[in-house]
Structure formats: C-alpha cells, structure tokens
Write a protein that binds this DNA or RNA. Structure first.
Lengths: 384, 384
DNA sequence: CACCCCACCCTAAACGTTTAGGAATCGCTT
DNA sequence: AAGCGATTCCTAAACGTTTAGGGTGGGGTG
C-alpha cells in the first residue's frame, strides 16, 4: 500500500518538463502553454502527487492558516462562533486552528505563552482571540507583524485601536436594565466572569448606568468562568447576611447554568422568589422551566464578521508587502464593529408571553441575519 | 516595531558557533557542551529567535499536528469531545486542527475530498474522525500511512479493523429499551440521523433487539442531522395516518431539540401524551420541562481516550520507521474500545424522581470518571 | 535581412532547518 | 611519544518547493 512520497521532480521527469514548468502549471500561474498544463495535471493526478505545504511555506509565504484562541470549551456559545468563522474561512480555503489556553477548563498564563510561541513558529497568517491577551503576547504578535482580531472581547486598554467584533454590550445592558426597571426590580445582582473576558467591562457599565438611571441598587458578584464556580460563588453570597436581591443577571451561560442549578436545588422559585435574566440566547432556552429571558447575541454572525475582517486585514497587509512597504498590519476604525442585540422576553424575568414563538428553529441562529432591530421584542400579551 | 525575521544563522554568527551547534543546543540534543548550550539559549532569548516550523518539517518529520474531522458544529456534544482531545494533546505538545466537512451545517462530499487533501499537504501526524469517511478517503490516508482513529463512530464495514472509541451503543440501547418496557410502552418511535454517523447502526440494532425481546413495536424515522430537519421530519410523520407512538427516542441532541420544539408548539404534553428519551446527557437536561431522561455518554473521557490511543499508534509507527521497517500504522484489537453508559432517569420518560440529584455540577462531565456502573440509576422514589 | 517582442521554457539559487560525515582537541593508556 | 576514544564542533549536503534571471525560437515589422 505504502508508496514513496512523490516530489515535484518526479512529475518533472515523468512529463519531461522542468520543475519550474510543473510548479507554474500546478499553481495555475502564467507562462505555461495549455498543453503542458494539461499534461502536468494529468500525470500529477495519475501518480497521486500531493504538494508539500512545508516546502511551499519555506520559500514564499502562502500563509493560509488562522488561529482561534479560546480559554476553556465549556461555553456552547463558542460553537456558533466557530461555525461562523469556519464558514467564512473555508470559502477562502483558509485552515482554522483552534488553540485552547485553558488547562482543565481554567485559563493558564503559561499556556498562553506557549501557545503564542507555537503560533509564531508555524507562521500563522493571523489570530482571532475570544479573550483579552497579555500585553507581552500582544507585543510579541505585533513585533512579528501578525494581525490580531478580538471577537466577542474588546481590545485591551493598552491598545484600544486593535480590531474587534463584539455585540453592542453597553446597549445590550441598557436594554436589560430598562426591562428590569419596568418590572419594578430595585435590587439587582449581576453575576459575572473575570475581566479577562473584556466584554465584562461594557456589560457592567451598561447595567450600572441603567441602575442609576432607574434608581435601582446593583451588586456585582464575580465568579470564575464556569458553572461549578458560579454555583459556589452564588451560594456563598446568598448565605451572607444582607438584603435578598430581586433579580439575578447572569453574565453568560455557564454562570447562568450554575446559578439555576443552585436555585433549583434550594427550591428557590423563579421568577417568583427571584427573577433571572441571561446574556446569550441558546437553543434550549425556550424549553427550560421557566423559559429563559435572554439577550439574542448573534454569535455566528459575529464569528463570520470577525473572520471577514481579519482576512481583509491580512490581504491588505500582503498587498502592502508586495508593494515593498512596511509589513505591519494596518488597523482602521472600520475594523471595530458592534453588532446590535435584542432581548428575547420569556418567563424567567417575570413576564408571561403566551406561546413561545421564539422557539421557532428557523429564527434561532442559522437563518435570519436580517433584522437589526435594536429594541425589545414584546409578545402581544407581554404584561409587565 | 517590525524586525527582520531571525534565522538560526543569526544566532550562529552572534555566538560564533556553527548552525549545527546552535540547532543541537536549541533542541536539547547531545554533542554540545553545557557552556555553549547556555550561551546559545541566552542569545536566542535576547534576540527573540523563533524557529521556523516549516523548515523543520522539511528535513526531518517532526509531525506534531493532528486533525479532528467533524461535520457541522451544531451538536454541543463535540465541545466535550474536543475538550478531552485537547487536554491530552496539549500535554504532549501536539497541535489540534479542527476541520469541518459540512457546508452550512450539512455534510458535503466534495468538501471531504478537499479537507483530506489539505490534511495530506500539511503532513499531519494523524486523524481523528467523528464520522465514517468515504472509502476513497480511507484508501488515500492508508496509502500515505496516516493513522486514523474513529471517535464516537465506528469504522466502516470495509475496514472493520480500524481503531475507534465509542460509547457502548448497543448496550446503551438495550438499557433504554429495558426501561421503556418497564413503563409498558409498546409503540416506540426512534428518530435518528443518517448512517454516515455510524453509531446509528448499533443504536438501532440494540433498540430493535430490545423491542423484539419485550414484545414492542418499533418504527425508525430517519432525519438529517440537525434540529430543523428533525422537527420537519417528525411533523410529517405524526401527521400521517396510523397509530400514535407511546414514546419517542431521539438519536442525539439536535434531533431531541427539534422534536421537543415541535411537541411544545403543538401542545403535546410530555410525558403524558408521549414519553421522550434522549441519547446524550448535557448540562441543561435537568432544567428542561420536563427534565430529560437521557443516557450519560462520557464524551470527554471518550475524546481523551481517542487522543491517547492515536498518539500511541503514532509513536509506535515512528519507532517502527526508525527501525527501518515499513511505515504503515499498526492497528491492534486493543485500539478498539467501548465506554459503558448509564441511564439518567428523570421525568420525560414518565418517571417521578424526587429531587434531581443528577443536576449536581460535579457529577456532570468534568470530574468523576470513576463509576463504570452499567446499570440504570434509580432514585429512591423512582416509581414506574 | 536585421531587429524586436512575445510566449514558453529552463537552470540555478534561495528559503531555514537538520544531519551525515568528518576534523580538531584533549586526556588517558600503552 | 604514539595511539586511542570521547567530546565538541564544523562543513556541506540535503529536504521540496518557488522564483529570479536568462535562453530559445518564431512571427511580425522596418
């Protein structure tokens, strides 16, 4: 079964043409007659020739891989994100490499270093990161002219010009706050992940502004970014002395899951004893008891947008290099985008929508990327 | 910011040592004095040297990437699988490349060809596939001596010796069937994905055997492998003339989701009008209304096991090559493993467990890989 | 017929690393 | 003092591509 690896030279001798001609022919480049090209292609196919990517990469720089950095795979939200990224990348024939900088589910700084190193060694074309990286990492990437793109996480304070695609987290929070105020909630509890995931910043700011504006109290409770930690953190908090909150806002789905688990096991009734609102729509949300009021983040669209933007930056960069200019990637203001959100009102916040129409499968994710409506969607019987 | 890319030669002139010495020093190989090694490492660090993986790969074959093939990212189950694979791989410093052979969420045969091609071009060390590949693909991989491993999918009929790690699907189905029989269900409906995902085979066989054994009728209803298709397929089926089923068994979670959506929108009561059972435990299952009775697949463990096995095969292969033997990977019987399952009994099947203890976060996934109990877990108040 | 241009093709060098084969040095044994 | 083995290092050749720079021949133009 096993056959010796064929090189371009084998095709060369088999056709009687030079390696130059073979190479041009296979790459569809100019300077080869139609006849030669056809012959080369025929022989290559018959012999089962497969080019060696390493050798190609050595000479020119057909850097055609992009790395996606995540920390922990517990959040199903990343699936949609990846789906959007993949969809775009595979059209352009770019390989996506998923790199996890979490060990046993929690972020690890040393691993971040090693992964960045890996990235450079394999001469990736660009990086998409779902969390804010260390300044050293960014400096390293910059010194290698490697374009980076933040997705669902904003660039760090030290480098606010870096490109990013996020949900419009600030307005999303205002939207949530407004809805909570309509319910008359006065004592909000925001259960949230660490600042390493920088969406935290805008989400918190929006909620705080909303609380101030509507005269509510808000407490921010930080937990590690997974369900088990969220459950433990919330348990400790609720056991303390102090006023019981009206409503719980979960910063993302792992935290929401942890919180709901705790509430369920303690027999706390939602929304009667405590209202609950979450940040990311997901497929099962309408089927939970009670059905969950959440923001409708358009993860797949965000992923796709990030991928497109990154590819654009990479292309512009390689064009500049070809013109003999400096190789640093050029980041423009339009490379920073925010995607609007709506609030999917279900029952966990205290509303009583009649039949949950939002559970229509067509509407959730895949299909419609049309409506950019920025207001709260209310069912006809949406009494507050 | 931008600096010229450093080569090993730059380190060579900076230290006054030859490229040979530098290379050996950086790789920790023998034949270099401690003093030289230290100096090389120091200079390399100061100058910010990063080796070029492409060039390394060109000479020797430090093939240190493994591809994971999936089709569609809609099933959150893959997250756990990937998590298990990553955990193992990153310990051994192996890069995992995720390759999707679905376009817009559905399997695409042409894309499979292109992805396999890509795989060969980049000289991957091995492949883990979550679905049964085309015979041509397998032949191609074999002719390149590329080890393949099936995870959560069995090897195809043409090559039953290929290694795999799956849940014990046959016994899992028997377990389900036994439980359904205890409920007295006589008319089962099995909603299932296409045979391309080969777990279908054992799952169906187990259910059929169980039905025969307990004197029940079973209907197998095939749907494409996503929620929207499942919903549509089920709708059409239920609208036909004919007896209404007692109980619905969903072949995996996307199908379960589609089914539940349909039932909810039609007002069908679960489990009163129709019992429901699913195949993969997931984090939200205890919180759904009604809480879902599902099998407890240990996806992360399966992923980890598959990764370990593949690495073992790869290592054995490269040892054999070093000994001058043939390069074909050697597949042994012990490379085929089946992981046992238990049934998590909740309410959707018609049972009434008291408080859902299975919602403890520690138990679901991450932590305990201890119990290999193969029987049905029953709560004290588990009345049938 | 001299000239130029173009299409097609070739030879040879380059990319950044590893490695085969050998040379130099040193200390030790005879 | 010669011989030897071990240690440390070097030179040069490989790996499989792409590409710079040049060569050939044929057709059109003066």
């Amino acid at each position: 079964m096993s056959k010796r690896k064929l090189t371009i030279r084998d095709i060369s001798v088999a056709t009687g043409l030079s390696t130059f001609t073979v190479s041009r022919a296979l790459n569809g480049a100019a300077g080869v007659s139609e006849e030669s090209r056809r012959q080369v292609e025929k022989v290559a196919r018959e012999l089962g020739y497969v080019p060696n990517r390493a050798a190609q990469g050595l000479r020119g720089a057909p850097r055609d891989s992009v790395a996606v950095i995540i920390a922990g795979t517990s959040n199903a939200y990343y699936l949609d994100l990846m789906s959007g990224i993949q969809r775009t990348m595979q059209q352009k024939d770019v390989t996506v490499v998923l790199m996890d900088i979490a060990v046993n589910g929690v972020y690890d700084a040393d691993l971040e270093d090693r992964v960045i190193q890996r990235l450079l060694e394999s001469r990736m074309a660009g990086v998409i990161s779902t969390l804010t990286l260390k300044p050293e990492s960014l400096a390293l990437l910059a010194s290698w002219d490697l374009p980076i793109m933040f997705v669902d996480s904003s660039p760090p304070r030290e480098a606010p010009h870096l490109p990013s695609v996020t949900t419009d987290n600030y307005n999303a929070s205002l939207l949530v706050g407004e809805h909570l105020a309509q319910h008359g909630y006065k004592n909000w509890l925001f259960l949230v992940y660490p600042e390493r995931w920088s969406t935290r910043f805008d989400r918190e700011r929006g909620l705080r502004d909303a609380a101030r504006q509507h005269g509510a109290e808000i407490t921010v409770l930080e937990s590690e970014n997974d369900a088990a930690a969220a459950r433990a953190t919330l348990a400790t908090y609720l056991d303390r002395a102090g006023p019981w909150p009206d409503v719980l806002i979960a910063g993302n789905n792992p935290l929401l899951l942890g919180a709901l688990n705790l509430l369920r096991s303690r027999g706390t009734r939602v929304p009667d004893d405590l209202g609950v609102v979450g940040y990311d729509e997901f497929a099962w949300a309408p089927l939970i008891e009670p059905s969950l009021t959440v923001l409708n983040e358009r993860s797949e669209e965000i992923g796709g947008l990030a991928a497109e933007t990154l590819l654009e930056i990479i292309e512009e960069q390689s064009r500049a290099v070809k013109r003999g200019e400096a190789g640093a990637p050029e980041y423009l203001p339009r490379h920073q985008r925010q995607v609007p959100v709506d609030l999917l009102v279900r029952r966990s916040c205290g509303c009583h929508p009649p039949l949950d129409r939002t559970s229509d499968l067509v509407a959730s994710g895949k299909a419609s990327r049309s409506t950019t409506n920025h207001r709260t969607k209310k069912g006809p019987a949406d009494r507050v």
